[in-house]
């Protein structure tokens, strides 16, 4: 399962980092608290959040996350999008809320296992 697969299956918008759409996904984590993500997310996870500022990319890069998915149609701030393009870690956007989106992601990622 790669990032492109969840983009297609869930109709996500690719806001930035399209050069990373072939990154492998092995799981996910949903949280808006940065330390919570830092402590509990893992490599190759998709991260579901409503945070849009540049620090989400610092975390995604340090943790080697597969992608970030913003909820409720949120878009990344310009400097976050820029770093996402540089690092090839996509920032995606969904119209859905975290609960619905996480449920769907959980299902498709587990089906692929």
């Amino acid at each position: 399962m790669i990032v492109q697969d969840i983009v297609e299956k869930l109709g996500l918008k690719v806001c930035s980092g399209a050069n990373g759409l072939n990154r492998e996904i092995e799981g996910g984590y949903t949280s808006d608290l940065l330390s919570d993500v830092m402590g509990n997310a893992d490599e190759n996870h998709v991260w579901v959040t409503l945070q849009t500022h540049k620090n989400i990319m610092a975390i995604a890069s340090l943790k080697e996350l597969a992608a970030i998915v913003l909820v409720k149609g949120y878009e990344p701030e310009a400097d976050a999008a820029e770093q996402s393009n540089e690092e090839g870690i996509p920032i995606l956007s969904s119209e859905e809320e975290a609960f619905e989106l996480t449920g769907k992601l959980y299902e498709i990622i587990n089906q692929a296992k």
């Binding site: 608290l33 940065l34 330390s35 919570d36 402590g39 945070q51 500022h53």
Partner: peptide
């Protein structure tokens, strides 16, 4: 509001 300040930083350091 930015998602910092959860009070989990020092505990994260301890664990890691």
């Amino acid at each position: 509001e930015m998602g910092f300040g959860a009070g989990m930083g020092l505990p994260n350091i301890k664990r890691n």
